[in-house]
Design a protein around this nucleic acid. Structure first.
Lengths: 223, 223
DNA sequence: ATTATAATTTAGAGTATTATAACAAAGATG
DNA sequence: CATCTTTGTTATAATACTCTAAATTATAAT
């Protein structure tokens, strides 16, 4: 009955690759799971069997309602743990992902509930990603990539992609955490280098970084 | 290289059954690991292979120095986590064992060190059991079973056996936590029922309980 | 010393997860 | 549209852990 850790991981991975509605491909899964494609194929058959996903050979997978519920539950665990590690144990935000990835399969509901309480029922993890509620609800905010802003616009950092720890550390060093206000000083042509003001400091960031940062509350200040 | 979770569990179990010097039997291990004896046999061969234990067929096992080091490390993780759960997350002391058992295999050294720091480098877990140091040192205290005390003696609770959660809850309800001062009011003949004063309250406990509680700092008050 | 009993080990097999190599389907190209 | 390339799947096998049933060894008892 209880899904294994591996099953949980696959379901979560499918959920996070799904992004909207498209089916997820075997190769995409193989890549994020760091596993051979053939391994994914056999796993997909099993997930279909277990009722977590619908798998059509050569066409990809998508989660069923049951799979979506499971995924949201794991994401909830993951993000709550990440926040707990940052807030209660002062672990740097670029090192909580791996840890949370292991904890998420191991924490009891009782302890998770307690963490949630200690944290004051937070809505977002340290990277600004929404923490699903117990019922599976997701707090939504409309965000835009920093790379889409134009010179002169002000905004607030909403979320930072957390896939690459090194990038996260770099972004953290720039002071670009969620809820930090920024202003676009300039956007250079061709390579799209963005000069951004963060508090007193200014930084020039490239497209790779600019596309990994999501912002909200955009104000166009005509000067 | 990295020992698997299962290997860690076996090594820890052997360590805790060893209690001094005797070899541990297959059936004892099978019981605590909740596994068939045949499973233990094959595992013991593997532990011998890996250098964690010395296994002689039909004679039992004992840990090597390497196995002992591993066991102490796991016990350290387990007990630190138990204390953290009780202190930081207010989980009742009779429910931390299972949780810690899962966490101990999953926590990074970094996070463990932080927990240790937050807790102020404690020497004992919530049940009074010693927490091994990073170097494998064990804080020792000479304790005696409560069942060995005589009427009129005073003492301080040092440690409570934590194998049976229900018993732990019961003992907790009696207020018999580590560091609590007690006085033996009476010991009944035959069944050995012990009347013990804890603060203002008096309780009568049986041998099963009295033998699960260890005390220190015994004072014989001749009245 | 022989036998009965209890403990332990071997043999054979199953589940879950993974991989490699060979084959098949889809999609892209000329 | 025939072919080439990419992507995905089957077949087969390995590893880690577990089990049941049968065989073996140790221990206790006559």
């Amino acid at each position: 009955m209880e899904p294994t850790q591996t099953v949980e991981d696959y379901v979560r991975a499918i959920y996070q690759l799904q992004e909207g509605a498209e089916d997820v491909s075997t190769s995409a899964l193989a890549e994020v799971m760091k596993v051979a494609p053939a391994t994914v194929t056999s796993m997909l058959k099993k997930l279909d069997q277990l009722g977590y996903a619908v798998y059509t050979p050569y066409q990809g997978v998508s989660l069923t309602e049951s799979g979506r519920r499971l995924a949201l539950n794991i994401v909830r665990r993951h993000r709550l743990v990440e926040l707990y590690l940052v807030q209660a144990l002062e672990i740097p935000w670029d090192r909580v992902h791996e840890e949370a990835h292991r904890w998420e399969h191991v924490i009891s509901d009782e302890v998770l509930a307690k963490m949630d309480e200690v944290l004051g029922h937070p809505e977002r993890d340290p990277h600004g990603a929404p923490i699903p509620g117990e019922n599976g609800s997701l707090p939504a905010t409309s965000t835009v990539r920093l790379s889409a802003l134009r010179s002169g616009q002000r905004a607030v950092v909403a979320e930072v992609a957390d896939n690459v720890p090194e990038m996260l550390r770099y972004i953290g060093n720039l002071g670009l955490y969620p809820d930090v206000a920024i202003e676009i000083i300039a956007v250079a042509p061709f390579d799209g280098l963005v000069t951004v003001r963060v508090g007193e400091r200014q930084h020039i960031i490239g497209q790779r970084i600019a596309r990994s940062i999501f912002v909200k509350d955009i104000i166009s200040t005509e000067e």
